[in-house]
C-alpha cells in the first residue's frame, strides 16, 4: 500500500510540474473552456425562455463542469499513452515492477485531483459570472462524485488500451468530446435508457443535489444500485480491456512503437 502511495505521489507531482512548465498551454485550456461556457450562457440568454433563464443557467453550469471533468478524465490516459510512446518513455513505464496499469491509474488520480481543483475554480467563476449560486453540499456530492469517477476511469482505461495498440487516436478523441457532451448534457428524464451508460447516473444525481437541493437521503435504493453497478461494471471492464490490449501489444510487439 505504501509503495502504491509512492507511485501516486510522484505521478501527481509530475502532472503538477508539467502543467506548471507548460503554463501557457494550461492557461489557454482554461480560457478556452471559460469562453465555451460564456458562449453557452449568452446563447441561453438570447434564445432561451426568459421565465426559465435561472434554471437553465444552473443546468448549464453543472453540465458544463461535468463535461470538462469527464473529458479530462476520459481522454487523459489515452493522450498519456500516445504522448509517452512518442517521447520514448512508455517502455520505461512498462519496466516498472509495479505494473504499467498501476502507474497509469496513479497518473490519472493525480490528473483528477488537479483537474478537480480547476473544476472548483471554473465552478465559482461560472457562478460568479452568471449570479446563479448552486447548492454545493460536499457531504452529498463527494461520495456520488467518487463513484461517478470510478466509471469514468473505467472508460479511460478502455481508451488507454486502444491507444497502446493504435497510438494515433486523436481523431477518435475529438469525436469522443461530443459523445461526452451528449452523456453529460442530456438528463435521464429525457433519455432514461442512458442510465446504463457510463457516469450518466452519477451526473444526474449530482444535478439533483446541486440544482434541486437533494440530500443523500432523498435518493432511492434503486438510484444507489445503478450508481454502484455503473462504477463497478465500467471500472472492471475498463481495466480488463486495458490489460487485454496490453497483452496483445506485447505479443505483436506494439509497445513503444509510434
Amino acid at each position: 500500500m505504501t509503495t502504491l502511495w509512492n507511485v501516486i505521489r510522484v505521478n501527481t507531482k509530475k502532472e503538477y510540474v508539467e502543467m506548471k512548465r507548460y503554463f501557457a498551454n494550461t492557461l489557454s485550456l482554461l480560457l478556452t473552456f471559460y469562453i465555451i461556457f460564456l458562449a453557452m450562457f449568452f446563447g441561453i440568454q438570447v434564445i432561451g425562455d426568459p421565465a426559465e433563464a435561472g434554471a437553465n443557467t444552473q443546468f448549464i453550469i453543472v453540465n458544463y463542469i461535468f463535461w470538462y471533468f469527464a473529458m479530462m478524465t476520459l481522454q487523459s490516459i489515452g493522450w498519456t499513452v500516445s504522448d509517452e510512446a512518442m517521447r520514448g518513455t512508455l517502455e520505461q513505464l512498462y519496466m516498472s515492477p509495479m505494473g504499467a496499469w498501476r502507474i497509469l491509474l496513479s497518473r490519472l488520480s493525480g490528473m483528477i485531483f488537479i483537474h478537480f481543483l480547476i473544476v472548483i475554480l471554473l465552478l465559482f467563476l461560472s457562478m460568479l459570472t452568471t449570479g446563479e449560486w448552486l447548492n454545493l453540499n460536499p457531504a452529498a456530492t463527494i461520495p456520488i462524485l467518487l463513484l461517478t469517477i470510478a466509471s469514468m476511469i473505467g472508460v479511460g482505461f478502455m481508451i488507454a488500451g486502444l491507444s497502446i495498440i493504435f497510438k494515433q487516436i486523436s481523431a477518435f478523441l475529438q469525436i469522443l468530446q461530443f459523445i461526452i457532451m451528449g452523456l453529460t448534457f442530456v438528463p435521464l428524464s429525457v433519455a432514461p435508457y442512458l442510465i446504463a451508460a457510463p457516469f450518466v447516473k452519477g451526473v444526474d444525481m449530482t444535478r439533483q443535489i446541486m440544482i434541486h437541493n437533494y440530500t443523500l437521503a432523498d435518493f432511492s435504493i434503486s438510484d444507489y444500485s445503478w450508481l454502484i453497478a455503473n462504477a463497478v461494471v465500467y471500472g472492471i471492464i475498463g481495466v480488463s480491456v486495458y490489460l487485454a490490449c496490453e497483452r496483445y501489444a506485447m505479443k505483436k510487439g506494439l509497445l513503444g512503437h509510434y
Binding site: 505504501t2 509512492n6 510522484v10 505521478n11 507531482k13 510540474v17 508539467e18 517521447r87 516498472s96 515492477p97
Partner: peptide
C-alpha cells in the same frame, strides 16, 4: 522527461518503482 529537471526525473522513476 525533457521538461523536468535532473532531480525530478530521478525522483519520478524511483517513485514509480515504489
Amino acid at each position: 522527461y525533457w521538461r523536468m529537471t535532473v532531480e525530478e526525473n530521478l525522483e519520478y522513476f524511483a517513485g514509480n518503482r515504489g
